[in-house]
Design a protein around this nucleic acid. Structure first.
Lengths: 238, 238
DNA sequence: GTCACATTAATTGTATACAATTATACAAAC
DNA sequence: GTTTGTATAATTGTATACAATTAATGTGAC
């Protein structure tokens, strides 16, 4: 009886997944699930990831769980000790700072290349995004602003026309996702951020590669500075 | 009869592996095997990776093969199409150029941080490496030089004391491994490379971060230039 | 009490079995 | 000859079974 019941639950979970997600493979579903859980803090650094528990939790078998874990391991989000298990790794504040420094360089590079290679369509897309940013900044709609920020940078990743650079930046951006979310929720920062985005867009539009790179690097650097001032306020939480 | 025989072969392969390799998990063994095969051209872009064939070839089951493939997928070395299969992706010349550009920035950053943070032991290690480089450059021993080059950069990755940056650079270096191997096999380049390493080492020793960064970035840039002149010579091969 | 050792349980590692999907081959219709 | 449909084979996707390793527990000697 219990077995049948449990099986029914698993089947139901699976069915819901197949409907919602565009029927990707289970391992990618599991990968996204665990990564998000780590990045928004549901799984904390030091937590052990037990395959059977995860399998039950997600209603799948251990095989896709293992595939996902191997990927997370490669990304450095978990640490696997052979025959013992895997634990959540997470990032230290130092790691996040490092990522921002690295991003300021690589995003700068992306902006430089984008200024050289962007096509009219993507240019128009950027323009629209910046306009919308102006709108939502006035409205103080931080959720929309975060999304637009992601899109703005995403379009540039595409426009720089480098598979490798895009791949690197996509990952780096994900890692600091939670830090980034908090960052924009300061009105001052949102306003400053808007101006920075404007400058970057204008430099790209003018095909001024050097300026685009400079502004973008500054933009990322000021993001980390802002993050630090936020940290300073709730220092006791550490 | 055949089954028993085949099983014997697989067992023998496995035994040899357990002896030689320090008894790591199978998936990491498989991962390294396939990655190396792709990077030194045994598996060519477009080749299909069939799980059962790989399993037989390596004398393991499909599970570790799949785990390894998921990792390769994340690294961008293979492309997986659900329910169809995975094909080797490899890197285009443009990708390699991009990687060198990215490396010149990130290695520069690593050198900058290394100049600020390196300890006496690693500093001494660097000094020894540079001395040995001088020795083997005179001897035209390119195999040793390649190894020393890897060690030189490896020490700096360690010395910069950034988990994230080290992780990124380790991967990038692996991707251009085969390109790099050819590059040093030009006497002129070896000599020039030695001088560049010397300058970088001296800047780090003097704790001159800006100079270390500048010299390192130049070093990587000249490596790609050298690579291009090599390409120019055997252009017909494409 | 605690240390050593054996026994059991929990967990990971690997292999295999089965299901689902896609590719291939071949025949019939036009 | 081309196309369409169907049966078959090949391959991937998933789940489960079993082996190996490690952690936990308990028991007896001292």
């Amino acid at each position: 009886m219990e077995n049948i019941e449990e099986n029914g639950v698993a089947k139901a979970k699976r069915f819901a997944r197949l409907q919602s997600l565009e029927r990707y493979s289970l391992h990618s579903y599991v990968f996204n699930y665990i990564r998000d859980a780590i990045l928004d803090g549901r799984y904390k650094p030091g937590d052990a990831l037990v395959e059977t528990r995860l399998a039950e939790e997600l209603g799948v078998s251990r095989t896709p769980i293992r595939e996902a874990i191997r990927q997370l391991e490669l990304e450095g989000l978990v640490i696997s000790i052979p025959n013992k298990g895997v634990v959540v790794n997470g990032f230290s504040q130092q790691d996040i700072d490092d990522i921002y420094t690295i991003r300021s360089m690589l995003e700068g590079l992306a902006a430089r290349w984008a200024a050289q290679r962007i096509d009219q369509q993507k240019l128009k897309e950027l323009e629209e995004i910046v306009e919308l940013m102006g709108y939502y900044t006035k409205k103080n709609d931080f959720e929309q602003l975060t999304q637009l920020d992601t899109r703005f940078h995403g379009v540039i990743y595409e426009a720089c026309d480098s598979k490798v650079l895009k791949h690197l930046l996509d990952n780096l951006l994900r890692y600091v996702e939670q830090a980034r979310r908090g960052s924009l929720k300061v009105p001052m920062r949102a306003c400053q951020s808007l101006n920075e985005h404007r400058s970057i867009f204008e430099a790209i539009m003018k095909r001024n590669a050097a300026e685009a790179e400079k502004f973008m690097a500054k933009h990322i650097s000021s993001a980390i500075l802002n993050l630090h001032s936020l940290m300073g306020q709730n220092e006791k939480e550490n």
